[in-house]
């Protein structure tokens, strides 16, 4: 799931200064599931904007990250001066690429690929690095969960299972070791983990994947 956080209202208002007719565009994907940018949230934000003197209305599409669900907006958009998107960054960019004539502003900050570990608490679990090594690390990701992204961890700062950089967080390498030990696989860690291939990750941007084709 892509985890997002609403931008403060003051920040949003600072973007919209000078516009009058605003479309608050929600998305029924990830942002809707955790009540950040679905139908309800889009409607509530449009109401707030109306109270601040804007002519604001709201609408949601099934997924803003898919041009198929955006294309029908074309006609409607001519009635607005600007769009405030409550989708993640992927949605905002997909919208902007399709409709270059109308300004679009982000209403949320896109944080990470994560899981809701308890109600309202989201944690990053995957860095989308393009070279998954979870088969070596008992299913836990040091790329995402170790601040140094160590592949041959843990570093010299882990203490009683806590991370040196964020002492309130567990050291993922200690967890990996515990699990591999339980599974009788500790010896595997004596192998030198090769370095990551950044040509599969942020070193090669923008990344593109064509389904069914080997691609970077």
């Amino acid at each position: 799931m892509i985890v997002t956080r609403p931008k403060p209202l003051e920040e949003v208002l600072s973007f919209l200064k000078g516009f009058r007719k605003i479309l608050v565009l929600g998305c029924r994907g990830c942002v809707a599931i955790y009540h950040v940018g679905g139908d309800k949230e889009a409607k509530a934000l449009a109401q707030k904007l109306s109270q601040k003197g804007f002519e604001a209305s709201s609408k949601s599409v099934l997924r803003q990250c898919d041009p198929r669900y955006l294309k029908d907006l074309k006609e409607e958009l001519s009635q607005f001066d600007a769009v405030l998107s409550l989708a993640c960054g992927v949605g905002v960019v997909t919208f902007a690429e399709m409709f270059s004539e109308i300004p679009v502003y982000p209403g949320v900050d896109t944080l990470f690929c994560g899981a809701q570990v308890e109600r309202g608490v989201f944690q990053e679990k995957c860095r989308a690095c393009g070279n998954c090594l979870l088969h070596l690390t008992a299913g836990l990701c040091p790329v995402a969960l170790c601040p140094k992204g160590l592949l041959n961890g843990p570093c010299g700062g882990s203490s009683e299972g806590r991370c040196e950089v964020n002492p309130n967080k567990p050291c993922v390498w200690e967890e990996i070791i515990k699990r591999l030990e339980k599974q009788g696989r500790l010896e595997e860690l004596l192998e030198l983990f090769p370095p990551r291939d950044y040509s599969l990750a942020e070193g090669n941007s923008p990344r593109e994947y064509v389904h069914g084709k080997a691609s970077k």
Binding site: P147, K148, G149, L150, L151, N152, G153, L192, F193, P194, P195, R196, Y198
Partner: peptide, 12 residues
């Protein structure tokens, strides 16, 4: 933070 490599990889 760069950490392209870790200390073990740097040694190698």
């Amino acid at each position: 933070p760069v950490y392209d490599l870790d200390s073990v990889q740097l040694l190698s």
